[in-house]
């Protein structure tokens, strides 16, 4: 009985402290908040200065959180649009290609897609703490030669070239805006959510760029 209560208590505590995004079944290779993720070389103080440089503030956190409820049941539709864009852009689909055949690896694309849905929720939750910062570093490494392909054990090209990472800020945020407007939010709120998203995606693409930079130049 005692054990039962302890387990129940433990489950309740774990469940209530886990982020909303984590409450869903974690996709393969999604290691947010686990010991498998190394510490970001960037400090939270440095993150704060970077946010300040992007005019990212409490209001953006508020509007990102507002976007969470709007987006949570639309992630699949959003990913259809994003994957459609990638598929129609040969210079992007290349990064999902099999190194030997050059053909897009469907399984690889599908696995990334599941984590991509989590990324949408994680971005909207906007708990930009140490765990989040560490995971941005992990995502950076997975775009980079250090860890690309490893998570999904695929035989694809060894690196996503840096220039396409910040470039994607525009298609990602532009195509997100109509989804933000689908649940009856006012035009002003939609604009504010959109701006908060632009800042957050830009911030993340900067962080993902870290492994690509020459020493001391990040």
């Amino acid at each position: 009985m005692k054990t039962k209560i302890a387990i129940l208590f433990f489950t309740v505590v774990l469940y209530s402290t886990a982020s909303q995004a984590q409450q869903q079944k974690a996709p393969a290779g999604y290691t947010y908040g686990t010991s498998a993720v190394a510490k970001s070389p960037m400090s939270l103080e440095e993150l704060k200065l970077l946010q300040q440089s992007l005019l990212f503030g409490d209001e953006d956190i508020k509007y990102l959180k507002m976007s969470y409820d709007i987006l949570k049941d639309q992630t699949s539709d959003i990913l259809d649009v994003w994957y459609g864009f990638v598929a129609s852009t040969p210079q992007l689909v290349y990064f999902f290609g099999n190194k030997t055949t050059g053909k897009p690896d469907g399984e690889y694309l599908a696995k990334v897609r599941e984590r991509f849905a989590m990324w949408i929720l994680q971005t909207a939750e906007a708990n930009y703490d140490q765990k989040w910062l560490d995971y941005q570093y992990e995502i950076g490494l997975r775009h980079y030669s250090a860890k690309k392909n490893k998570t999904d054990n695929v035989n694809s090209v060894p690196i996503i070239n840096y220039r396409y990472i910040p470039a994607l800020t525009i298609p990602v945020t532009t195509t997100l805006k109509p989804f933000l407007a689908k649940k009856g939010a006012s035009a002003e709120d939609v604009d504010k959510m959109y701006n908060a998203w632009v800042k957050s995606v830009l911030l993340q693409s900067i962080l993902w760029g870290q492994p690509y930079m020459k020493k001391g130049e990040f």
């Binding site: 970077l50 440089s53 992007l54 005019l55 701006n195 830009l202 900067i206 130049e217």
Partner: peptide, 17 residues
């Protein structure tokens, strides 16, 4: 001697907004 990468890219937002 250098403007760090992260602030150069971050500046996209203020000069746009």
């Amino acid at each position: 001697p250098i403007i760090h990468y992260r602030y150069m890219v971050a500046f996209i937002f203020p000069i746009t907004a």
